[in-house]
């Protein structure tokens, strides 16, 4: 994979804003939007998923740690979200490779549902969110006791987060931007 990280002002600014927005959304709003005590929405992973496709792998690991750690501070769950986000950041490149379109990615491809298509986006988001949530919920209980309840939590939460991410994509990632 090509190591490409445009440290232009555009990258820096939009992604710093996204970072702050997603962490704020997570701790201020999503923290209280838990469905039936089983489905949790960890929308902050969208920050990692929406990074440009050719982001440097070491950078993305550090960003994953940073965003997970920020959430950990608010949630009093030292290390759990940071660990899960680092895992997600590491596995993002292999999953992207797996889902490469027939003619490869363009250099200016971004993670955008209008640009990449429904099936590509859903597969990409679902796989990575599932990995992330599995790590979070099993680290939280630390045992295989009541594994069924944990599994139900993982599945429902993954669906919940995926739907949340879909809504964000459809609302804020316009078709026009994709065509540019």
């Amino acid at each position: 994979m090509q190591a490409y990280f445009p440290m232009t002002s555009k990258f820096g600014l939009t992604h710093i804003v996204q970072y702050i927005l997603f962490v704020a959304l997570q701790v201020l709003l999503m923290d209280s939007l838990v469905l039936y005590s089983t489905a949790f929405c960890f929308i902050y992973v969208a920050f990692l998923l929406f990074l440009p496709i050719y982001t440097n792998r070491t950078w993305i690991l550090l960003l994953g740690f940073a965003v997970g750690f920020s959430v950990d501070i608010f949630y009093d769950t030292m290390g759990i979200h940071a660990g899960a986000s680092v895992l997600l950041a590491y596995l993002r490149a292999p999953v992207l490779n797996l889902l490469t379109p027939r003619d490869g990615y363009d250099t200016n491809d971004t993670v955008n549902i209008h640009l990449m298509g429904w099936r590509w986006f859903l597969a990409y988001a679902f796989i990575l969110i599932l990995i992330h949530h599995t790590f979070v919920f099993f680290m939280e209980v630390f045992t295989l006791r009541e594994a069924w309840f944990t599994l139900v939590k993982i599945i429902t939460s993954t669906l919940y987060t995926t739907v949340g991410m879909l809504i964000i994509q459809l609302l804020f990632f316009s078709v026009k931007r994709a065509n540019r």
Partner: peptide, 21 residues
């Protein structure tokens, strides 16, 4: 293998934080 090594390092740090906290 810098990406892999960094990944392992960060994960060890996270698990250490979980256990310590």
């Amino acid at each position: 293998f810098r990406a892999f090594l960094l990944f392992v390092l960060l994960e060890i740090l996270c698990v250490y934080m979980v256990v310590r906290y």
